[in-house]
């Protein structure tokens, strides 16, 4: 299959966002990762999983000092403006809940939110996640289990959505 980098950009941006928790810095991270991918293009093996290769570069770029050079948590609200609390009445309850869950995910520590995102959102296999993050398979599973536990705790501690912001439900017969 011919490599198609652009089709993987949304996944790279999502992963970069979860790693950096900031939209601007996520794009910086994606660009820096592409520059590093260019420099290391010879490490890509034709036929290998391109998405996994790219995600691993994003991951390595982030953990190899790039993040330390950036200021942390410049603006959680900037990433998902209505993640923690919707500013406008959403049209569907799932959207409200999704924002709430996303806000909780972003409050998880490093190593928890990114691995959960790769498994739940990107649908990577555990072997692919191990490859992206450079950790053993067993570590992937234990981290995932712990991340889910932390997500549940975050959601249990989160305030309920105010009644005024709850979506209006319509009974469909």
């Amino acid at each position: 299959m011919l490599p198609d980098i652009r089709s993987h950009l949304p996944a790279l941006r999502r992963y970069a966002m979860v790693l950096t928790r900031d939209a601007d810095r996520a794009e910086d991270l994606v660009q820096e990762s592409l520059v590093r991918a260019l420099a290391g293009a010879s490490t890509w093996q034709p036929g290998a999983n391109l998405r996994t290769w790219l995600l691993s570069i994003v991951h390595n770029t982030c953990v190899s000092g790039w993040r330390r050079e950036q200021s942390e948590r410049r603006g959680l609200a900037q990433l998902f403006p209505d993640a923690a609390e919707p500013s406008e009445p959403p049209s569907q309850i799932a959207v409200v809940e999704a924002h709430q869950v996303m806000g909780a995910l972003l409050r998880l520590p490093d190593g928890a939110r990114d691995i959960l995102m790769l498994a739940a959102v990107e649908g990577l296999s555990y072997r692919e996640i191990a490859e992206v993050q450079g950790v053993p398979l067993g570590t992937v599973m234990s981290r995932l289990s712990r991340a889910r536990e932390q997500l549940r705790q975050q959601l249990a501690a989160a305030p309920p959505i105010p009644a005024s912001r709850r979506p209006h439900l319509t009974v469909v017969e």
Partner: peptide, 18 residues
């Protein structure tokens, strides 16, 4: 419940506007 949370994450995690 965990499966439902995964579903919700897929809905909530969208690429940011650049």
């Amino acid at each position: 419940a965990d499966k439902s949370l995964s579903d919700l994450l897929r809905v909530g995690c969208v690429a940011p506007e650049v």
